[in-house]
Every structure is written in C-alpha cells, then in structure tokens.
Simulated scan of single mutants.
Amino acid sequence: MHAIVVTTPGGSDALVYTEVPDPVPGPGEVLVDVAAIGVNYTDVYHREGRYPLQAPFVVGSEGAGTVSAVGPDVTGVAVGDRVGWVGVIGSYAEKAVIPAAKAIPLPDDLSFESAAAVLLQGLTAHYLTHSVHAVQPGDDVLVHAAAGGMGLLLTQMTKLRGGRVIGTTSTDEKRKLAREAGADDVIPYEGFADAVRELTGGRGVRVVYDGVGAATFDGSLASLGLRGMMALYGAASGPVPPFDPQRLNQGGSLFLTRPTLAHYTATREELLARAEDVLGWVESGALNVHISRRYPLAEARQAHDDLEGRRTTGKLLLIP
C-alpha cells in the first residue's frame, strides 16, 4: 500500500509518499480500507517533531473507511462496518490499523468525507463547549480563527447552546464565512482585546477558545471578564512562553486550561456519547461541515503548506 512516511522530522518535505507493507491487525485491532483522511495541525506538530513520535512513522490521526479485517479478541466491530476514528497515528495511508475501542460507527447516510472532516474537530469543539466551559444562554464567547475548521464548528456549537460569538478572522472572505456559521460579531486580530471590551460593554467574555497560541495569548487573557476561562487548545502560531500565574489573579481570578481531546474521550462510553451528538447534528443539518479542499494522498505536502500558510478555510482532506 501507499502511505505518507516521516523518517526525519522537519518541514513539509519530510512527508514522503512511499510504498510500505500492508499493516496486520493484532489483538483488539481492526484493519480499515481508508476512504478519507482529515488533515490537522496536530499532524504538523508530529511532522515537525514538536510532538515527538518514534521515527519512521506514518503521519495522521483521523480518518474514515470500511473495516476489511479484524484481529483476535475483537467484539462489537465486524468486517464491512463503516467506521471513523481520531487519535490513531498512521492515518495518512491506504490502509490503517486502529484499536477496535476507538472505532466510531458511522450512520449509513453519512459520507466518509463528512466523517473524516468532522470527527477530530467536532469532538474537540464538543468538549470545549460542553465540558471545559459549558456555554450557557447569553454567554459572550471569543472564538479565534473563526473561519477555520475548528472555528466554524466552535461557532456553531456555541450558538446551539445559546451563546453569543465574537470571532476573529484575517480576511473579508473569512469574515463572511464566520458570519454564515452564526458569529454575531467578527473582528480583525489587530486590537481584538479592545474591540471585545467595547462589544461587551467593558465586561469581557466568559470564555476564550484559543487554538492560535503565542500570537493571541496576551490579548485573549485581556479579553476575559471576571472569573473567565481561557481554553488554550492549540498553538498554530507557536507555543506560549512561560508566564507568571499572578496575571490570572490580576485579570480577575481567571482560569487557564490546556486541554486535549484524549482526556475528554478517556472511556469508550464518553467517546461514543460525544460522537453521537456530533454526527447526529451533522445528519440533521444542525451542524454544517465545511470542506475547503480535497487532495490526493500523494499531495500531502501541498495540504500542509496550504494549512500552515493560512490559505484555507474549513477542513482539508486527503483522499487515498
């Protein structure tokens, strides 16, 4: 089979399209013929070595396809099942082995592309808006990169829960997409903390969902109201430097968390409960999945270049 392999971490040229042996499922695992693969910033971090993996490795942690074989001791998943997954390294490939415990059953009328486009970011948006800070009706919420794949889903889920969304974007085209997703106000990054204070009558927001990191961190803290929550779920612009926790006191007894999806899908029951919500909303039309671009698997380098160059909106997919 063909896969995208990283031998030495680095830039996008570290992604090598090559032929590798077909994987074989072991105990508790299933083999999937991959139909669609999600491209995420986590993949960039793995490729760069920011999140180190044992090299060589096949990149990617999200996808969807059809089970073609099952290993020993597998129950509840059978050959022919349509499944999706998140958090399983080795997804940039024509075939992938995943733990049966991480196989998410897909509704028959949900396309593989929609599943691969929504699972990782949809489950992340779910735990952020339902668990890290459970948005309440009337809450003012700041969503950074509101026209990106995560931002569009965060905006929609915040609106489903009755919150008011202030989104940041960098272009007029992205501003339009954020408004179409339900953002109440869309502002540029420059001076966003002052704009947030003005839009909230000086109160600040209840929560900031920040996947940008270093470039927005200070402004995000300054945007929070009394006892506000800073949810730093990513670092697209680079990691946040160490800082004095006393700033949280000075800002109004603020909360800061650096969550990750694995800790909010720690059991299969929690994984399936969140997935049922997200996939159900996609099926019903309550949640719109915006697929920006599709690339052949062999063009993974271009997908990473476009993602890092901020030339995209919505979700990027690789198609084997």
Rank of each mutant, 00 (worst) to 15 (best):
Y92L: 02
Y92E: 10
A93Q: 04
A93N: 03
A93F: 02
K95H: 15
K95W: 01
I98S: 02
I98F: 10
I98D: 04
I98A: 03
P99Q: 06
P99I: 11
A101V: 14
K102C: 00
I104N: 07
P105V: 02
P107F: 09
S111R: 10
S111E: 06
F112W: 01
S114E: 14
S114I: 00
A117E: 05
L120G: 00
L123A: 04
L123T: 10
Y127A: 08
L128E: 15
L128A: 08
T129F: 06
H130F: 09
H130A: 13
S131P: 00
S131F: 13
Q136N: 12
P137W: 13
P137T: 04
P137Q: 07
D139L: 07
D139G: 06
D140E: 14
V141Y: 09
V141W: 07
V141N: 09
A145H: 13
A147G: 08
G148F: 12
G149R: 05
G149L: 10
M150V: 14
M150D: 05
M150R: 01
G151C: 13
L152E: 09
L152M: 01
L153K: 02
T155F: 05
T155P: 09
Q156K: 09
Q156T: 00
M157P: 03
K159I: 12
R161M: 06
T169M: 08
S170I: 06
T171P: 08
T171R: 08
K174H: 13
K174P: 01
L177M: 05
R179L: 14
E180T: 14
E180C: 00
A181E: 10
